[in-house]
Design a protein around this nucleic acid. Structure first.
Lengths: 246, 246
DNA sequence: AAAGATGGTAAGTAAGCACTTACTTTCAAA
DNA sequence: TTTGAAAGTAAGTGCTTACTTACCATCTTT
């Protein structure tokens, strides 16, 4: 039981001998817990495992987080708030202004796919939370997914007014598009990690999904005349409105 | 001790007299276990809970299933094999013969959506299994998803030869289509059960997703001449082949 | 160098877990 | 009516779990 001063045998950070500053240790525990919770879920990951992986005793875990629940909540907050997930609306704001449909959808798709690929833990964590009916699920849905629906929905509505897109419920279009992306990431990370069914780059996936969606909702050549007439009329109206309001 | 108190107060099912035939009890346990495993996952559901829900002692559960693992496996077999999931290839075989693209895709989508709606436990069970990296996941993917990819992929390839569909990797098309459907079911059953973001009938969803996909992959009016030429040429070739082979 | 705060641990505890043992009740066939 | 197999249970067993207690070690401050 010589404790083998552990720093030699322990995997996580062999560089540092035992002692750590409080905040540093806290973050280390958090990182390790994220990894274990995402692998085994809340019930599946034990505090003992977490402590061992961090190279400390269980008691230290409970000094930083009073209960396992609190640790879980801290993780979800940490992941949901701090981590990436930069506002997608800003990301494509320029493309929206230029009305570059292809850029809008393809950029969103590519960014999401990259995000999922380089941080697969987050998706697993979210899935576990959803299955356990944890409140984070609703929080995530409300603050993130909802905003994308509004943002993309508004863009689609605008392009419909332009006559560029046919008349479909924008929410259905968004659901379909997000579905293609999410399911592709889920397939890659969860169902078919060896990618036997489909093995393509994120660029390719983003491009082809966008192509299918855009061709699926743009107005046809046959009805193009009608569409452009409407577009012109619409442009005049918006111009008038602008002058009136300002 | 105070054990008698619990036994007198604890009467889970006063309606049915205790005793059951072996097979009957086995199926009852299975049904209850399905429900509990799908709600709480493998680790989350306890044998005690299952026994209580069935109105029997824990020992009876272990008389029918030697271990918890065995019960889990029995459930997955029961659900994956016995339950529904009728061959989708047969379902749309007629539409495929008539080359009725709309019917092929819309029927598949609608059937899947209905299936997911009336048996949400199965999807939860599958998700839990996937997160726990249970072998069923691969089994399900190989025997069910793979076949759909092959089937739909072949159909798309055929229609591409006809000149009816543009040249896209059929696997990507299938992934996109399945993605729209799966994500919609997942949204309805897991993420947004109150359907605040989107609340549409399965008919509507199947129709609109199909519409987007088909418009997204059919050849355009501008290139229709070229396409139909190719289609005619292709038809002649197949006709010749048929005569030659037979 | 004394002191006090902070990082860290060994050794618990009570509850809960999957699973077992030893026993009783029911019921249909011989 | 006997009997024996099947349905059923109470009361464990040993292990694991989240969480605690009481104590040690190592810095920093004055």
């Amino acid at each position: 039981m010589s404790k083998e001063i552990t720093s030699s045998t322990n995997e996580s950070q062999p560089l540092l001998g035992g002692r750590m500053a409080g905040e540093e240790r806290r973050l280390q525990i958090l990182r390790i817990a994220v990894s274990l919770f995402s692998q085994r879920g809340f019930r599946g990951a034990t505090t003992k495992e977490i402590a061992q992986a961090a190279g400390i005793s269980e008691a230290m875990v409970f000094r930083h987080f009073a209960t396992k629940e609190e640790l879980y909540a801290a993780i979800l907050d940490h992941k949901a708030c701090a981590e990436g997930l930069g506002d997608p609306c800003e990301l494509v704001a320029d493309a929206v202004r230029r009305k570059d449909d292809r850029a809008v959808f393809e950029t969103l798709a590519y960014t999401a796919l990259q995000q999922h690929e380089q941080d697969p833990e987050f998706m697993r964590l979210l899935l576990h939370a959803a299955l356990e009916e944890h409140q984070l699920t609703q929080m995530f849905w409300d603050t993130f997914v909802l905003r994308i629906y509004e943002f993309l929905g508004n863009y689609i509505r605008e392009r419909q007014r332009d006559g560029a897109f046919r008349e479909v419920d924008p929410s259905i279009v968004v659901r379909g598009f997000i579905g293609m992306i999410m399911h592709h990431s889920l397939s890659n990370n969860l169902w078919d990690p060896s990618r036997r069914l489909l093995n393509i780059s994120n660029e390719r996936a983003a491009h082809d999904f966008t192509e299918i969606l855009l061709k699926g909702i743009t107005t046809h050549a046959t009805s193009q005349a009608k569409a452009s007439k409407r577009a012109v009329a619409q442009t005049r109206i918006s111009a008038k409105k602008k002058k009136q309001t300002k």
